[in-house]
Amino acid sequence: MRLLLALLISITIGLASATAQKIEKIGIPELERILASPADQLHVVNFWATWCPPCVTELPYFEKLSKEFRDKGVKFILISLDFPSQIETKLIPFLEKNKITAEVKAMTNLDYNSWIEKVDAGWQGNIPVTLFFNNSGKTKYFHPTELTEKELRDLITKYK
């Protein structure tokens, strides 16, 4: 029995750390690399946080459409702006609870003013916002507010 318990605990820890490993913590250099991605495909980059209700509302649409468009050459990245001190305590439990399989990265640079305009000059710092781009195709569209599922689908179809 004790052995079984130990096994269960180690599996639980193993699962938790497997999810944790998936969350890459990024700074400005990694953000710049994402934004400069040369891959000839539509990139959908959403900035959000667990503490932001409209972000949480639209997240399932991103999750759903990321699955739907995974094999159709659309790359989704969900960049969380949760506070670095809350990645383990809030962000990861949230992702597990909501079974988010889309790629999530955690931006840990809090000197917002030094990178907000790298995303888009029109971004005022509110979230959620979503950037659609294909650097190879020279398309870029910055959506400055939340999206409905239909709006998200229409934008993907438009820029794909």
Binding site: W51, C52, L81, N113, E117, G125, N126, I127
Partner: peptide
């Protein structure tokens, strides 16, 4: 002038 992440005004 600076920009910062915050809660969007509803």
């Amino acid at each position: 002038g600076t920009k910062a992440v915050g809660c969007g005004i509803k």
